[in-house]
Simulated scan of single mutants.
Amino acid sequence: MPPADRPPPEKMMFQLNLRRRGISDQRVLRAMDGIPRDVFVEPADRDDAWLDTALGIACGQTISQPFVVAYMTERLELRDDNRVLEIGSGSGYQAAILSRLCRQVLTIERFRVLADRARSRLEQLGCDNVEVMLGDGFDIPAEAGQFDRILVTAAMEQIPDALTARIEPGGLLIAPVGPPSGRQTLILLRRTTAGLVRKELIDVRFVPALPGIAREL
């Protein structure tokens, strides 16, 4: 067994793999190191929690591959005073990472089961600056306001104007854009004084973003 003051080998490889794949932001790496991914996976998958792979969760959804979580987080260029919107809470893992890097996170989930489980896990880890809302990511309540950063964790065929309108001046949005089956491309939008500037990043694969609140199973 490794000494008590050293992380287990699988967690050491987890960090090493992120660095090898180009994640260099030390704040992001510390957040990824500090949030236990095994808390967010299904019990049967805990032995695989530190592998760099997506894993299935309830309601036919997934917890994203750690590299993709770190990559998207790094590209958000988060600051301590940022207010962040996440569309698609899933297991709550991405919101937990965000919570360590910004002032406030609002994460919206259409499945009640997932929202309740994510809320419980986040409370357990002391992520007190995260609010989990059961809702429709395509129809965000007006009172939610504007956001410095927006992160979409489900595939959209196009980014709706109603969502880009929520980006504060100087703010960023990242979303996987493309067909619901197959690969999508991560798109980065930056709001400048001249308007929205679009940049294509890497190809990814996400479950589709769907409108409405899911009916109870």
Rank of each mutant, 00 (worst) to 15 (best):
R121Q: 09
R121W: 07
R121E: 08
R121C: 06
L122S: 02
L122P: 03
E123R: 15
E123I: 14
E123L: 14
Q124D: 08
L125R: 04
G126N: 05
G126R: 11
G126E: 09
G126H: 08
C127I: 10
C127P: 08
C127F: 14
C127V: 13
D128I: 06
D128G: 15
D128P: 05
D128A: 08
N129K: 10
N129A: 12
N129H: 11
N129I: 07
V130S: 14
V130C: 11
V130W: 12
V130P: 08
E131S: 14
V132K: 04
M133K: 07
M133N: 07
M133L: 15
L134E: 14
L134C: 05
L134G: 06
L134R: 13
G135T: 05
G135R: 04
G135H: 03
G135N: 04
G135E: 02
D136V: 09
G137L: 05
F138Q: 00
D139Y: 13
D139V: 08
D139T: 07
D139H: 09
D139W: 11
D139I: 04
I140A: 03
I140E: 00
I140D: 00
I140N: 00
I140F: 02
P141R: 09
P141E: 12
A142I: 15
E143Q: 15
E143W: 13
E143R: 08
A144V: 12
A144Q: 12
G145K: 04
G145V: 09
Q146N: 12
Q146Y: 12
Q146K: 15
Q146G: 12
F147S: 00
F147L: 00
F147G: 01
F147Y: 03
F147A: 01
D148Y: 09
R149S: 10
R149V: 04
R149P: 06
R149I: 08
I150D: 11
I150K: 07
I150T: 13
I150C: 10
L151Q: 03
L151A: 01
L151R: 00
V152F: 11
V152I: 09
T153Q: 02
A154Y: 02
A154P: 06
A155G: 06
A155S: 12
A155I: 06
A155V: 05
M156C: 10
M156G: 11
M156R: 10
E157Y: 03
E157S: 14
E157C: 12
E157P: 07
E157D: 09
Q158M: 13
Q158K: 09
Q158G: 03
Q158A: 12
I159L: 08
I159M: 14
D161T: 13
D161P: 10
A162V: 15
L163Y: 01
L163H: 06
T164R: 14
T164Q: 11
R166Q: 10
R166L: 10
R166N: 07
R166A: 11
I167D: 05
I167Y: 04
I167T: 07
I167A: 13
I167Q: 08
E168G: 08
E168F: 04
E168Y: 06
E168P: 04
E168H: 11
E168D: 14
P169N: 00
P169L: 03
P169W: 01
G170P: 13
G170A: 12
G171Q: 01
G171V: 02
G171F: 00
G171R: 00
G171S: 03
G171Y: 01
G171L: 02
L172I: 13
L172T: 07
L172C: 04
